[in-house]
Amino acid sequence: MTGSEPTPPPLLAADDLVRSHLSGSTLIPAVRGVSLRIDRGEFVAVTGPSGAGKTTLLHLLGGLLRPDEGELRLDGRRVDRLREAAWARLRRRRYGIVFQSGNLLSDFSVADNIELTAVLAGMSTRTARERRQELLADLGLAHKATAGPGELSGGERQRVALARALVNRPELLLADEPTGNLDSRSTRDVLALLSRYHEQGTTIVLVTHDARAASTADRVVSLFDGRIADDARVEEPPAAWRSATGIRDVIDFGG
């Protein structure tokens, strides 16, 4: 025996997850054996073509779908067999989730959508309000606080959904294409916000088709046809590259 400390279990560990969807009477395989460990504090991007199984995988990791086969552990504890009520509690306490559609309560204002989530989790109304103001300002949406979800563009709805997922400072953020409908500038705001939460310790799993978003993560998992085709750390190019030669490497000036 060596004197080394036992390594703590990863925050999330998926072991050979399999999940199909029933469409009419045919089963469509969506995730076909994915094993993945995500350590506390990691920022992982999941990319892949449309239909690769990204959303299904994210839903499995958040307990919104149960696997047909395989195991899922949170802090080393099996969670793939938990009942819905237990999962709901777990998500409220530890997860922030942004759905691809930008899920919001349609009868409440933007401000209430965010603050209610916080208050339901036990935060004081005052803190909830401060956090909401801060998040909306960071996302360039301070002027939309009193608007209803119906008055928002797709991109604005996604950003409000992100604010709602972050207001409780979750340990683990699962976000499904949160920059999918955004222009370049709003994308930058969202990525800056994600990086800041990551620096403060939030573990992030970001499903994205946007290479700029993916390159903000420390690790990129490429899904293909329900399986992991690649899993790689993102590396900083050498500082020397980050000059005009970096551009010249990508764009041909014809000179």
Binding site: S215, V220, A232, E236, G246, V250
Partner: peptide, 25 residues
């Protein structure tokens, strides 16, 4: 082929990371 594609994807993403940094400066 898969290794070639994976290596090239990694390369592009690392370059993108460099461009993000450059944009910040």
């Amino acid at each position: 082929r898969l290794t070639l594609i994976n290596n090239q994807r990694r390369h592009c993403i690392n370059m993108m990371r460099g461009l993000n940094k450059l944009a910040a400066t």
